[in-house]
């Protein structure tokens, strides 16, 4: 049997599909159409209903493999890997896309080894090579200094993780047809070695900087912890979350989950505002692909301005309070209009 079809791994939480599952369909549909092959999504979970799975079909999938089992409620890589490897061996997809989330970046490398597949991490562009039909996978490397395009000429499947928010989610349209295939979890595939014994959400609420549409980030230019209050205030007006440079984290002004960059998180929000951040390449690597970038810095030569769509050169301690005041007004205006 030869390899055919494009698969996406659809992540879900509490029975709901994540936004990134639909972003992968945008990517997958394009590839499947170019290859003239089928697009399938795979859900591994304990509580995703068929109704919820139908949403993937409405958004472009031709098939959904739905594996629900109470033993799969938590992501334990060994179990998920067993499920995926089993399905890959049975159905032989040509391309498998996962999200470059903590889950995808753990599971896909584990699977790729076992099925002898090539895997490219954290891709921002995907295409099909005209002559060969190979998957072309483009990703930033060396802290975002280069864009490398990679392919897998001889091995199948071809696998990639895709940076969340690097594309728009596929829209759900009524009337699309597709098939939901329920798959029983074979107890032979259960690996009982690792046990999840607890979970705590971070003490702070707004630490999910990866999924946020707006990130307001503060750097060493803020001078002290208390000054992050202005950043938080701005984030509130914009319904966003607070990000930070490594130096700000290192100073203990804010906790590590807020760190953006090479040794922190990669974010691609609609709006990224960098305040008192110089724009070191390790920081840029984590935010350069944001849709809109605003920078506020007193140094006109700061590298952050190179990636900014709009840059304010000036003293942040004067500018930020003024901006916050105007944002508060804008909000008021909006409220009156409603």
């Amino acid at each position: 049997m030869s390899y055919s079809g494009v698969w996406t791994l659809a992540e879900a939480k509490d029975g709901k599909l994540k936004r990134v599952a639909f972003e992968l369909l945008t990517r997958g549909r394009k590839l499947a159409d170019k290859l003239d092959e089928e697009l399938a999504s795979l859900i591994i979970s304990n509580d995703v209903s068929e109704e919820e799975a139908e949403r993937l079909i409405a958004a472009g999938a031709d098939k959904v493999y739905l594996v629900n089992d109470k033993k799969l409620g938590n992501f334990i890589v060994e179990n998920y890997s067993n499920v995926m490897v089993d399905l890959i061996e049975k159905h032989k997809p040509e391309i498998i896309l996962g999200a470059a989330t903590t889950l995808g970046r753990t599971l896909l490398p584990h699977v790729a080894i076992r099925v002898e597949a090539g895997l490219t991490a954290d891709c921002t562009e995907l295409d099909i090579e005209e002559e060969t039909g190979n998957l072309l996978q483009t990703r930033p490397a060396i802290g975002g200094n280069i864009l490398a395009t990679i392919h897998t000429p001889k091995h199948r499947p071809q696998m990639a993780t895709v940076r969340p928010k690097s594309t728009a989610p596929a829209e759900e349209v009524g009337g699309r047809e597709g098939e939901i295939i329920n798959i029983d979890f074979d107890s032979e595939l259960y690996d009982g070695r690792v046990e999840r014994v607890g979970f705590r959400t971070s003490e702070e609420e707004d630490v999910n900087i990866v999924d946020a549409d707006v990130v307001v980030a503060g750097g060493k230019g803020l001078k002290k912890a208390e000054n992050f209050a202005m950043i938080k205030e701005m984030a509130q007006y914009l319904d966003g979350v607070v990000g930070a440079s490594r130096d700000a984290v290192e100073m203990d002004w804010i906790t590590y989950p807020h760190q953006v960059g090479l040794s922190g998180k990669t974010v691609t929000p609609k709006l990224y505002i960098a305040i008192g951040v110089s724009g070191a390449i390790q920081h840029l690597a984590g935010m350069k692909t944001s849709d809109n970038i605003v920078a506020i810095n007193e140094d006109p030569d700061a590298d952050i301005f190179k990636v900014a769509d709009i840059g304010l050169i000036g003293n942040l301690f004067e500018l930020v309070p003024m901006i916050n005041e105007r944002l508060a007004q804008e909000k008021e205006v909006e409220k009156v209009e409603v």
Binding site: L119, L136, L147, T149, I150, T152, I293, K306
Partner: peptide
């Protein structure tokens, strides 16, 4: 190695 680099590009540095 299953993967091969086909091309290296320099992303636009400035917006």
């Amino acid at each position: 190695s299953p993967t091969r680099v086909v091309n290296i590009d320099r992303p636009k540095v400035t917006r």
